[in-house]
Computed example of a mutant assay.
Amino acid sequence: MIIAIIGAEIAFWVLLLGGLATRYLLGARRVSSVILACVPLIDLALVVLVSVDLLRGAEPTHAHALAAVYLGLTVAFGHQIIGRVDVWFRYRFANGPKPVKPPEGSTEEVKAIWAEWLRVLLAAAIAAVCLVIMIAVDGGAIPESISTISKHPYWGILHTIGIVTGIWFLAGPAFAGTGDPALDRPENRKTEVQRSDAP
């Protein structure tokens, strides 16, 4: 299963970079759109693989649990990653605008911090739902203690997801404030980044 996750990650980047190279280096926009549209199929293939493995009676492993986490992360962050790489590719190979970050301390930066944490929350929710389903398929046994939770692959990862999500909130939006609107003015930005139109 670990090999399947690594293979899915490699396939994601191969399709992404291949699609963008086809778009900006070869000028084949329609073909690139088809290639990029195939990226979600990687997640579908991983879900099918995990489902088949579990339904055939495979013992619960951390690899199965990590597959659920991987699915949550790719669904929540996949489109954003594609957009950022598309902007960079456009800048590097098609004379597009230079990628820049929002000014530090600006309301735009604060909004970006909150948006990132909401993606983390979405990823955690998707992974949690998958893990709960996997727990149900495994018999639905509920651990009796914290020590028991840490020993079970599904419950252990589910517990870890909650901790990581909470820490991410404290390290990110919890103390980000509201930002300074004055820093959002055009003169404080060196380059405007156009929104990616990659699918």
Rank of each mutant, 00 (worst) to 15 (best):
M1W: 07
G7T: 01
G7I: 00
E9G: 06
I10F: 05
I10T: 01
A11F: 06
L17K: 04
L17F: 08
G19S: 04
L20N: 03
R23N: 11
R23F: 11
Y24V: 01
L25P: 02
L26Q: 08
G27M: 07
A28T: 08
A28Y: 10
V31M: 11
S32R: 07
S33N: 14
I35R: 07
C38L: 15
I42V: 09
A45C: 10
V50R: 11
S51N: 09
V52R: 13
L55S: 08
G57Q: 11
P60Q: 03
H62K: 05
A63I: 09
A63P: 08
A65G: 12
A68N: 01
A68R: 00
A68T: 04
V69Y: 08
G72E: 02
L73V: 15
G78C: 02
Q80W: 15
I82T: 12
R84I: 10
R84G: 10
D86R: 00
W88V: 12
F89D: 04
R92H: 05
R92V: 09
P97K: 03
V100L: 03
P103Q: 09
V110C: 05
A112Q: 14
I113K: 03
E116A: 15
E116C: 12
V120Y: 15
L121H: 00
A125V: 03
I126G: 07
A127H: 00
A128W: 11
C130F: 12
V132K: 11
I133C: 12
M134A: 13
I135F: 01
P143S: 05
P143M: 04
P143G: 05
S150H: 06
H152L: 02
H152Q: 07
H152E: 04
W155P: 02
I157H: 06
L158I: 08
I161C: 06
I163C: 06
V164N: 00
V164R: 01
G166I: 04
F169P: 03
P173N: 06
P173W: 08
A174W: 13
G177T: 00
T178Q: 13
G179Q: 06
D184I: 02
R185S: 13
P186Y: 01
E187T: 08
E187L: 05
E187M: 07
R189P: 04
R189A: 11
R189V: 13
K190T: 14
E192F: 10
V193H: 02
R195Q: 14
D197R: 13
